[in-house]
């Protein structure tokens, strides 16, 4: 009775009990979606907040400026409001080469790659003695003698006054060399590239979170749906099989019960069903045997002629016996 007939699973047969399988699976899906949606929203909010904070912080990063050819501490000399002469202490060649351009313009030109080496006068620092005109530059500047100024004033209406040298500034740092400017440019480029890379990384992570979240949601729902249908099928499969035997029993057919397919669930339940099937088959066989006994007794005792009621009863016994035998015959065949 426990033979195994090899029925293979087929996708089209996966919904054996649609009402149970769909009800079960859709309920799980609805609840999972209901729980995942607010969680996803929260995740998205947290990710957006973290991303915004990170981006704001990246925006705060200040990359080092490109070094200027003009010394940082240097400033343009003030021109006395009374028209006092301002004496350029150091570079008398610069005005000759560049005309009367402001030092700032020179700096701009230098930044764009010029090789000139302008030096701008600076106001003296309070409390410090003014530097001498022929004082050696602090760091490696070439010492240059100031040419003696000679003027013929015979025809001039200008009164000759001993011009006092006014110190308007001093050089605190030497200007950056072209190599240093190049290095600072490279450093700035690297810094800016790093900022862009960081931004892209943070934004990329945010996009990744969104994509992973969407994929996770789809995977969870699909996983639940597929696994739900598959699991309920593994329950419905044996129940479908049991249902066929139940229908046969209902129609008074005591058929051979075959084993379940490999991988089916409810193996224990199926064993219970097989035992029950065997139990009712035994009951049927007992009834059949008792009916035979009764008919045999009626014949042996000659009861058929005793009364019409007895005759009817024997006929009924014979009808029932025939039914019972027909119902069990298939099992024995």
């Amino acid at each position: 009775m426990a033979n195994n007939r090899g029925y293979k699973r087929s996708w089209k047969n996966y919904l054996l009990d649609p009402s149970y399988q769909l009800r079960f699976t859709l309920t799980i899906l609805a609840v999972a979606a209901g729980l995942m949606a607010p969680l996803g929203r929260w995740v998205s909010q947290k990710a957006t907040t973290a991303t915004e904070v990170a981006l704001n912080q990246i925006d705060e990063i200040r990359c080092p400026d490109v070094l200027s050819a003009v010394a940082q501490g240097a400033q343009a000399p003030d021109v006395d409001s009374d028209g006092e002469d301002v004496v350029d202490l150091l570079d008398e060649q610069a005005p000759a080469e560049e005309g009367n351009e402001a030092p700032g313009n020179e700096a701009a030109e230098t930044e764009s790659g010029g090789d000139s080496d302008p030096i701008t006068a600076q106001e003296p620092i309070e409390g410090e003695p003014p530097p001498l005109a022929d004082e050696e530059d602090r760091e490696g500047s070439e010492r240059r003698e100031r040419p003696a100024m000679k003027a013929d004033l015979d025809d001039s209406e200008m009164s000759i006054v001993d011009t006092e040298v006014v110190v308007v500034g001093e050089i605190q740092e030497r200007p950056a060399t072209s190599e240093e400017i190049l290095a600072s440019k490279t450093a700035r480029k690297v810094c800016l590239a790093d900022v862009v890379a960081r931004k892209e990384s943070v934004e990329g992570r945010n996009s990744l979170i969104t994509i992973v979240m969407l994929i996770s949601g789809v995977v969870l729902l699909l996983g639940l749906a597929v696994y739900g249908i598959r699991t309920t099928h593994r329950v419905s499969g044996p129940l479908f099989k049991v249902g066929l035997y139940l229908k046969k029993l209902e129609n008074n057919t005591y058929d051979t019960v075959y084993n379940l397919r490999k991988g089916d669930q409810l193996v224990e339940f199926y064993d219970h069903f097989k035992d029950a099937h065997a139990g009712v088959t035994t009951m049927q066989e007992q009834d059949r045997d008792r009916l035979k006994d009764a008919i045999k007794l009626a014949k042996d005792a000659g009861l058929a002629d005793s009364s019409d009621e007895m005759a009817e009863s024997i006929k009924e016994l014979e009808r029932l016996l025939k039914e019972k035998e027909e119902s069990i015959v298939q099992k024995e065949a």
Binding site: V43, K46, A47, A50, T51, V53, A54, Q57, I58, I61, R198, S201, V202, R205, N206, L208, I209, V212, M213, S216
Partner: peptide
Amino acid sequence: GMLGFLIWQQADVATNII
């Protein structure tokens, strides 16, 4: 776990920058 790790990583990036 995967989503949590990604969010934590994002928050950690922000924290490290600060």
